[in-house]
Structure formats: C-alpha cells, structure tokens
C-alpha cells in the first residue's frame, strides 16, 4: 500500500542539523495513522510539547514533525528518571493523493493531530475541438 505509512529512516540527526542542541539525538513519537475516505489522519504522542514547541515541516513529498519539550522543572534534582530527555522528530513520506496545501495540525494534551486531506479528484472534462 502506498501511503503516508512509509517512514523514512531518520532515527539519527542528519549532518546539517547536528548542532549542539541536537547532540542528544531525537526520540520517535509513537503514531497512529488511518486512511479515511477523504484523507489521512495521523496522531503522534508527544508529551511535554505545547503548541509553541511544535514544528511541522513540509519538503517535497516528505513531512517532518518536530516537538520540543518545555523545560520541566528548574532547581530540582532528578531522583530518578524514566522519560527520555530528548525532543521528538519523525518523518513520513506523503502519498501523492494528499493536497499538501490543506494539511492542518493541532496539539491536544500532548498529542499531535494531523489531518492530511486528499486532493479533489479532477473531474472529467470535455475538450472542445476548434
């Protein structure tokens, strides 16, 4: 099946964004993707990311979601930690049927909801002969 399913291998930071901030690497958010009649819906779990920390990049037929965690607590010492102290990043290949101009994103309680509508089908036209 050809759809947004195809995840590009992007576990490690690429050379150009291996800045100091990125040294720690990324963590991949867990996603659900469903295809509905008129598009695709993607949900990505990014706890700790507010609307301001979210970045959605579109390049050619690839969409990248980046979530930066809000700093949690200042001045307190971690006693122990299970969460990853890393920002989120994951890329997906877009199905050609998706209208990239109509993609919408919203954050809700640490979950990103992306709507990726399909382009309206080109209606059959009659070409007049001159």
């Amino acid at each position: 099946m050809n759809s947004t399913v195809a995840t590009t291998q992007e576990n490690r930071p690429t050379r150009e964004n291996r800045g100091e901030e990125r040294q720690r690497g990324w963590v991949q958010p867990q996603v659900n993707i469903v295809e509905v009649k008129d598009g695709y819906l993607l949900e990505a779990e990014m706890p700790g990311v507010s609307k301001e920390g979210l970045e959605v990049l579109l390049e050619n037929n690839e969409i990248t979601i980046i979530g930066r965690r809000s700093p949690l607590l200042d001045g307190s010492q971690p006693v122990y930690r299970e969460s990853y102290d890393r920002d989120y990043r994951r890329s997906f290949e877009l199905d050609p049927s998706i209208d990239t101009g109509k993609i919408t994103a919203r954050m809700e309680n640490g979950v990103l909801f992306l709507e990726l509508p399909k382009a309206e089908k080109v209606k059959p036209r009659k070409i007049s002969v001159e």
Binding site: E45, M46, G48, L72, S76, V79, S83, N109, G110, V111
Partner: peptide
C-alpha cells in the same frame, strides 16, 4: 507511563507522561 521523580528543598515532584488523557 514513564515516571520521573524530582526533589528540591521542600517537595518531591512526580511527573508522568500521559499524552491524550482527560
């Protein structure tokens, strides 16, 4: 869910990653 525990002078602070709940 992942749990973290922090400590400062007066408090213990527990955080849990619970995306998508009410």
């Amino acid at each position: 869910p992942a749990l973290d525990l922090y400590e400062d002078k007066d408090n213990l602070v527990l955080t849990a990653e619970l995306p998508g709940l009410k």
